[in-house]
Simulated scan of single mutants.
Amino acid sequence: MLWPLTLINTFGNGLFRVNSALFFTHVGDMTAAQFGTGLALGGVCGILASVPFGRAADRWGARRVLMVLWSAEAVGILGYTQVHSFWMFLLLICPITAVDRGAVVAYRALLATALPQDGVVRARAKLRALANVGVGLGAGVGGIALAVNTPTAYFAVIVGDCLTFVVAAVMLAGLPIAETPAAVAAGQDRRRSGVLRDRRYVLFSAICTVLALQFGVFEVGLPLWVVRDTSAPRAIVAVSLVMNTALVALLQVRLSKGSEDSVGAVRHGERAGWLLALGCAVFVVSRSGSAIAATVLVLGAALVMTIAEVYFAASSTTLSYNLAPDGQAGAYQGLFQSGTSTATSLAPVVMTSGVLQFPVWGWLALGGVFAIAGTSLRWIDVETRR
């Protein structure tokens, strides 16, 4: 019953994401540096907002909070049509990013109660696969606006994204999802201890933050690496990104098998860490050789890292729910998502100022960090339920 919501919402995300940079720099009268600065400051707001919004979901119900946040985000997104300066952009991007991160947390908290306990891992995997499909479809449609490249086309994209939030909020209101008041009450009673005092969960979130740096490889590292350090054609960047999106959608359900319990999820996470390390090593090798060899190696590295991404998603999703006490899914998902947001903010800096500045040792060091992070999941006492 949640699949239409996921498809509609992620379609809007893909629609706007592929156009945002050109819209704000060409229509919004900002420089690329100003746009990047605004995104970074918005990211900080998103990190800070995750846990408070998660607690709100526990207290007032995830569905109610999610409906409010999606409605607020629709209004904020529509406000982008009035942006013609950096300061106006900054005034909007900070609260919108905070609300967006809060909506992600509330959505994940909703999954804790809305999905059937039988086959919950498979259901989450299906929703993640569907999310990739939605983003891909949205990006494809958004490409039309890029080709047209007029203010009217970009405004249409913004209005379209706004409508996806409105439609999703209305549909959510009509879904027969019953949140258990007892679970909410339990969360209120236990909140005194606080998620930040749960050392086990804090350690788990920190490890996942490190592993989530992998997303910077496809967004920043791979494109710059191909252009600057290999003989592979530039078109291979687009091929790699399409392959990543398609394979995640196709493999997420299948490769999530075995991660239904916490012990199996740890194995998946460890496997992800070592596969990421292998992918980094293959990138190093792709630096030398003919265009054909470089193309094959880059695609090979992208394939390995895509499989690692699927394993990591299965592992982190299961553990993020299983390690949280009953009734506090919102607060705990808030902490987990704040780590993911931190990784998203740091990844471009890690790639551009670290890995790509030292082409061989940078990749090898990043791979070593991934391997250590994946292996360190063994340190967590996942068999003790709190």
Rank of each mutant, 00 (worst) to 15 (best):
V217W: 13
R192K: 15
V210R: 00
M88N: 12
A186R: 01
M171S: 11
G142H: 03
L175W: 09
T97F: 07
L90E: 05
P176W: 06
D189C: 12
L203N: 01
V105I: 04
Y107F: 15
Q117S: 11
A212D: 06
F215T: 13
R108L: 09
P176K: 05
A125M: 09
V220F: 14
Q117H: 10
N149S: 13
K126P: 08
L175D: 11
A168Y: 07
T97A: 14
V120L: 13
E179M: 02
A139Q: 09
G119N: 10
R190V: 00
L211Y: 04
T180E: 15
G143Q: 06
L172H: 03
V220G: 14
L175E: 14
L196K: 00
V210S: 03
L115I: 09
L110V: 07
A168P: 03
G138V: 05
R191P: 02
S193T: 00
G216L: 08
F218A: 15
G160W: 04
L137E: 06
V141F: 12
T97G: 13
V210W: 02
A131G: 14
V184S: 15
I96E: 01
G142V: 08
V159I: 14
A206V: 00
L127I: 05
V184M: 15
D161K: 00
G143A: 07
A183W: 10
A139M: 14
L213C: 09
L146S: 03
Q214T: 12
A147I: 13
Q188S: 11
I207D: 00
V202N: 01
T150F: 12
G134W: 03
A112R: 00
A139T: 12
A212I: 10
A168M: 08
V167R: 05
N132M: 10
Y154H: 08
A106Y: 02
D100W: 09
L203A: 06
R192A: 14
P176C: 05
V157I: 15
L211Q: 04
I158E: 03
P95K: 05
V99M: 09
A114S: 08
A129W: 01
C208F: 03
D118C: 08
Y154V: 11
A145Y: 05
V159C: 12
V104S: 11
T209V: 14
L172R: 04
R124T: 13
A125E: 11
F165L: 06
G160L: 12
T209N: 08
V104Y: 05
I93P: 02
C94M: 14
R191S: 05
R108M: 10
L130D: 01
A98I: 04
R122P: 01
V170M: 14
P151S: 13
T209K: 03
V135C: 06
R108E: 05
A178G: 11
E179G: 01
G119K: 11
L203Y: 02
L115K: 15
T113N: 06
Y107L: 14
A106W: 00
P176Q: 05
Q214G: 06
W87A: 13
A212Y: 07
P116T: 08
S193D: 00
T150R: 15
L92F: 07
F89R: 00
A129I: 02
L127H: 06
D100M: 12
V220P: 12
R199L: 04
F155D: 15
V148W: 07
L111F: 11
